[in-house]
Design a protein around this nucleic acid. Sequence first.
DNA 1: GTGTGTAATGTTAGCGATAACGGCAGAGGG
DNA 2: CCCTCTGCCGTTATCGCTAACATTACACAC
Lengths: 318, 318
Amino acid sequence: MTVSRVLRNRGDVSEATREKVLEAARVLGYVPNKIAGALASQRVNLVGVIIPSLSNLVFPEVLTGISAELEDTGLQPVVGVTNYSPEKEEAVLYEMLSWRPSGVIIAGIEHTPAARAMLENAGVPVVEIMDVDGEGVDSVVGISHRRAGLHMAEAIVAAGYRKIGFLGTKMPEDHRARKRLEGFQEGLAASGLELVDTEFYSGGSALAKGREMTQTILKRSPDLDFLYYSNDMIGAGGLLWCLDQGIDVPGRLGLAGFNGVDLLDGLPRRLATMDACRREIGRKAAEIIAGRPHNGLIGGEVIELEPVIQLGDTVRRA
Amino acid sequence: MTVSRVLRNRGDVSEATREKVLEAARVLGYVPNKIAGALASQRVNLVGVIIPSLSNLVFPEVLTGISAELEDTGLQPVVGVTNYSPEKEEAVLYEMLSWRPSGVIIAGIEHTPAARAMLENAGVPVVEIMDVDGEGVDSVVGISHRRAGLHMAEAIVAAGYRKIGFLGTKMPEDHRARKRLEGFQEGLAASGLELVDTEFYSGGSALAKGREMTQTILKRSPDLDFLYYSNDMIGAGGLLWCLDQGIDVPGRLGLAGFNGVDLLDGLPRRLATMDACRREIGRKAAEIIAGRPHNGLIGGEVIELEPVIQLGDTVRRA
DNA sequence: GTGTGTAATGTTAGCGATAACGGCAGAGGG
DNA sequence: CCCTCTGCCGTTATCGCTAACATTACACAC
């Protein structure tokens, strides 16, 4: 018991005893068994984080935000990856909950009914991240992808573009990309416009795909004057291709992506984009989990971050 | 006990009882407590993975390999990030071991003495990854960064370049980058050459930094005819800058990076690079952990993967 | 000397599962 | 009819720790 007290810095132990305990622990190479500790104390210093992928730049960045915020709270993130599969998500969630984590951070607000039920009954704070368009289980931190798309459409139309194409991923389970597209179309519709052409891809290096798709769509619809990409990577590929071809960007053709990945600072032109507040989302989500018992938060917060349009060099200025 | 048997598919239970148990579990939303299970069975289905960073593209890729390989082994990776700090690594490792994972995968073979002691006494398979230049604790999976640097130097010299500069990160704790540089210098020395100039950076977007550094080093040493970058991202930045400047690549100036990130497929030219076998390293490491008790492996394997030089379009061909 | 308060340490009873074994019923062989 | 075997399910004792309470030691006031 005294050992337990020393190793947890809890309760009164004389300095002399404390020293002796630490010394002995060092000599023996003793590492306390958290499993037993957690079982006894009903406290687990783990936070489950469930994301669709690690290949998409965005999620490691969110993770970085989470890690940073959790840094000195004694909490530790445990990551699960779903590959955009709802069934996998359900399985991963079940697995995580069976470890009775102190909280769960999960990407998106679309889940299988079973997954949703688990989240509701988890008995710990749940934060759904990335997306606020819909009804969350507990807390939600993210941006409105619908409005992000809508605002981008407005900005593009305001800049005078009229024949607009969309290039994106062929992923029915990527609800956020879908919502951006819907919002975008809504934004166009408000000005009496609609998408002239679309092109979808799946798999492969995004940069290379961006090139290919851009070539394909422009060959099919040469009169397009703007291309909206569902992410910055394919947008960057498109931009590079256009520059190769000597296309006048943004005069003859405008381009925009989404995410605001700073990885791409340093391209010949700055691609128009919209910051998805990824790191900030991670931080805020972690903050909610970490602070919940102490700061009077009782759950159900919806924190909507406001993505900022950066027109960069690929949209005509007024 | 019968419930336990049903939920673990272990031992004999009649079909009728099994159905009843599953039904009841569903109705109650019962999620077994793995903490208690792990304590009782002394088995934990977690694998600790300790990496320096998530911002560096490379590590998410390794993680992807690990996840994929662990997919249907019932094992789950738990990620810890050290930010290249040996002390943080020690702390993260301690934290992980206190959960008694089934194995540990840790980047690098340089650790604090305490961390090394923990790894040696962990009593579970340990795989040190990325780097084979040195003495590992148990198993090691990686490439020789020293030889990677050396081979690149040989290839560059063979291509006829003579005035060679190096651009890299200012990170004393990035042992792999250091070893590549050392190997590179060794390779140059073998031909009686040495580095003409070097330039280091830290922080910021790698692409943009690559541009800056390239400009800086070429201004200072305009007669350089080759630039070796410590990673592909800054190399790509450098390449874009050179193209902007109308510099003849690879005629007047050759460029090479390291990692072989396929993210960059789609640049105007393919940067010369060397595949670091990231995903493969993840797979093999996970395979060792997953297979250990079953496949007769007893630990101590050293698996050295052979990175392949891809000369791309930024090194003169003979 | 006795009572009281405080600091330091010890005892006991779980936490929720599983390992290991025990018991019982019914089948089948002799 | 007895015995063994197998299939199924229950009992008991941990696993290594911590919460809660108990005890001891000692200082100090009266």
